[in-house]
């Protein structure tokens, strides 16, 4: 009987205590953050979406090689000697047209390993974290600033330059061969000095 009354009293008393606690919490300011209107400040070194500053990129491909998931895809075209690509902000001369710089951010594991090898600090993590898309291929970001036509032009230029070089090389080789033949013919007459001269001249051309 005593136990019975005690149980009853305990039941009522604990309910009253519980209700007191919940009533207090009615007036405690809530901890909710109204997310899209109000954002939590991010820590200083957050790793979120990658960004590439193409003005500084020299197309060295080191980031792509550092990437553990191969999400960076870079293609470059060499510039011809007449073209001026400008300088990076830390004074490096650019020598490559970066025709393609794709980052598949869907694959990216946010390890930041691509950031450290960059010689010009042009690839880095930003604090943007809201970039969901409806289609997966919209998550492939094209950072290259070159237009497709421009890319073709640069490729053609380089090929032309290459062809010219080949031609020059061939011509040089031909000249060399001719010179060699000449030298051979004249070998009997004048042996050592002539041969050396033709060699050095062919070196200059190439």
């Amino acid at each position: 009987m005593r136990q019975y009354l005690k149980n009853t009293w305990e039941g009522i008393w604990t309910i009253i205590i519980g209700m007191k606690i919940t009533f207090k919490h009615l007036f405690v300011p809530s901890v909710t953050i109204q997310y899209p209107d109000q954002k939590v400040p991010l820590p200083e070194r957050v790793r979120n979406r990658l960004y590439v500053n193409m003005d500084d990129c020299i197309g060295c491909d080191q980031c792509a090689r550092a990437c553990p998931v191969n999400c960076i895809d870079i293609e470059t075209v060499k510039s011809t000697p007449g073209e001026n690509l400008g300088q990076t902000s830390n004074g490096k001369k650019k020598a490559l047209w970066v025709t393609k710089f794709d980052i598949d951010i869907a694959k990216c594991c946010y390890c930041q390993l691509c950031v450290f090898p960059c010689p010009t600090d042009c690839i880095y993590m930003t604090d943007v974290y809201e970039f969901s898309e409806f289609k997966r291929n919209e998550l492939i970001y094209n950072f290259s600033t070159m237009q497709p036509g421009e890319v073709e032009e640069k490729k053609d230029n380089f090929e032309k330059f290459q062809a010219e070089k080949e031609a020059q090389k061939a011509a040089a080789a031909k000249a060399k061969a001719e010179a060699a033949a000449k030298a051979k013919a004249e070998k009997e007459k004048d042996e050592k000095s002539k041969n050396n001269n033709s060699k050095s001249s062919s070196n200059d051309v190439s």
Binding site: T22, H25, L26, F27, V28, P29, S30, V31, T32, Q34
Partner: peptide, 13 residues
Amino acid sequence: KVSAHMQDRLGPM
């Protein structure tokens, strides 16, 4: 609203 504020939330806003 009551449930939200008792759990230190805001409820529908």
